[in-house]
């Protein structure tokens, strides 16, 4: 849209916040609280985007939602790449995550358990698993990133004065 700042850098920064916080072992557990880090990343993107907004333009919830969505998609990519990176380093956040997931469940079919076992035996970096992880992350991060951006816009967004709206 004319007169609006670039979305790229706030979305990238927001995506990086999501990626780092969602992939570092232990810290990533924060996402169990309603996807806290993804909401935060979307909110950060909205805040940064709003900062560059021209003073005569209203920063709407819609603007926040759009920038949050883009940040969420970047976040999904960063999360997958960083998780892969941590696995290469031997920190294995993915395996830890799967282990805790399976330990808490007894009502799963044994085939699913076999799949997890194969992952824990070193199959975790298989392209299929990375792809499935990226796909799930893209869905979740885009939804919650949008929500984070929207809530960020609601909290940080500037609003035109009542007189200004009435005069229109």
């Amino acid at each position: 849209m004319e007169g609006t700042p670039s979305k790229l850098s706030p979305a990238l920064i927001g995506g990086a916040v999501i990626g780092v916080l969602s992939s570092v072992p232990l810290i990533s557990m924060g996402n169990c609280l309603c996807c806290m880090w993804v909401l935060l990343g979307g909110g950060v993107a909205a805040y940064l985007y709003r900062k560059d907004f021209p003073p005569d333009r209203e920063f709407t919830l819609g603007d926040g939602a759009v920038i949050g969505l883009i940040a969420g998609l970047f976040g999904a990519l960063f999360t997958t790449l960083l998780t892969y990176f941590f696995e290469v380093l031997g920190l294995d956040p993915g395996q830890e995550f799967l282990r805790s997931f399976m330990e808490s469940r007894e009502d799963f079919p044994s085939e699913f358990q076999d799949f997890v076992d194969s992952f824990q035996d070193g199959g975790g970096m298989e392209p299929l698993f990375v792809f499935v992880g990226l796909f799930f992350s893209a869905i979740i991060d885009s939804i919650f990133g949008t929500l984070g951006g929207l809530l960020g816009a609601a909290i940080f967004g500037k609003r035109k004065k009542t007189e200004e709206i009435k005069s229109k």
Partner: peptide, 16 residues
């Protein structure tokens, strides 16, 4: 059951 396991797996990162 496999579909159920996948759905549960899908929700794992966003809820305890």
């Amino acid at each position: 059951q496999k579909i159920a396991a996948l759905i549960r797996f899908f929700f794992t990162p966003i809820c305890h």
